[in-house]
């Protein structure tokens, strides 16, 4: 029991510590693939340190929501991170039904982020908030169709147990898992505002989603938002990597190796995807998400009726 809690605490510290580096690596990959040298992978840490020491500026019409929302965002994301297995270690929070809590606690973060955006009273933030609400709505089913379907198949309702129920022995199950991971990737891209859905490096407020919501934040508030967006990206990365543990043979060393190589591999994939795709038109994004959902449904149908 004691050792498990210790492992849980270590894994959450790992997630919190590595998360900015992961974002840095993605950006580096992207820079290299587009023929630039790019910022060092430590750049997010420098950014965070810089923001930490800045003066906080609040918009004139903002209320207590703007003050509390960045904090709430970070705390809820850390809570969500505490439910994820890193390697073969049991996470800090793990109980029956925690996938529901996981999905809904991210909902809490989203709720307050949207409110904080609308709190500014500017149309730019409003636009971002409306888009976030719309796209999150279509992203939610993807989570339940992937992780949820594994849960329904295995009969387990805890993230740790679900991932450990994956046994790569049956060919159709392997295909099932691979396609699930594709759906989760599409989900991650949406939730973390990456390329085909949102362009993190765009310069025009009208075309942003996530960035425009935190347009009027600065200083410590922006620090919290940035840090939580790094954590969010890494949370989805861990969700994705966890599909690829060979759970039948458990060993700590193997777990660590796969965790590291998986993260690095995922940065490659993200980098490539961001290089070769352009941002979709806002109108087409729900369609893209629905497509991901359709893949999930199809996958589940085919798995269930395979004899």
């Amino acid at each position: 029991m004691g050792i498990e809690i210790l492992q849980g605490i270590i894994s959450i510290i790992v997630i919190l510590g590595v998360a900015p580096m992961f974002a840095g690596m993605v950006n580096k990959q992207k820079a290299i693939l587009t023929g630039r040298i790019g910022a060092p992978i430590w750049q997010p840490y420098y950014d965070l340190r810089r923001l930490f020491k800045k003066e906080t500026i609040n918009a004139a019409s903002s209320s207590f929501i703007s003050r509390i929302s960045p904090i709430l965002n970070l705390v809820t994301l850390i809570t969500a991170a505490a439910m994820l297995p890193v390697g073969f270690w049991k996470p800090l929070i793990s109980f029956n039904g925690d996938i529901i809590l996981f999905a809904y606690i991210l909902g809490l973060a989203r709720f307050f982020q949207i409110l904080a955006a609308m709190d500014i009273g500017s149309s730019f933030e409003g636009m971002g908030a409306a888009r976030e609400a719309t796209f999150a709505l279509f992203a939610e089913p993807i989570f339940f169709f992937t992780i949820g379907s594994i849960s329904f198949i295995s009969g387990l309702t805890s993230l740790y147990d679900i991932y450990h129920s994956i046994q790569l022995t049956n060919i159709s199950y392997e295909v099932f898992i691979v396609i699930c991971s594709i759906s989760v990737f599409m989900l991650a891209v949406t939730e973390c505002s990456r390329m085909p859905v949102d362009d993190p490096n765009t310069h025009l407020e009208l075309t942003m989603i996530h960035e425009v919501m935190i347009l009027d934040n600065s200083g410590f508030d922006l620090f919290l938002y940035q840090y939580s967006s790094y954590i969010k990206l890494f949370i989805y990365a861990v969700l994705e990597i966890s599909f690829f543990y060979p759970f039948s043979k458990q060993s700590y060393l193997l777990g660590i190796i796969i965790f590291i190589s998986g993260s690095v591999g995922l940065t490659f994939v993200l980098g490539i995807v961001e290089t070769i795709t352009s941002r979709y038109r806002m109108k087409n994004i729900p369609q893209y998400l629905l497509f991901a959902t359709a893949i999930g449904i199809l996958n589940l149908l085919i798995y269930t009726f395979t004899k």
């Binding site: 999905a103 809904y104 709720f111 949207i114 609308m118 609400a133 999150a136 709505l137 989570f143």
Partner: peptide, 26 residues
Amino acid sequence: VVGLAFVGGLAVACFTKVNSIMFLGN
């Protein structure tokens, strides 16, 4: 389950709308 999750998402959209339009901003 997915239907229920969808309802949850719509409710979030709806109540962020209500709250922010009624109470926040100018």
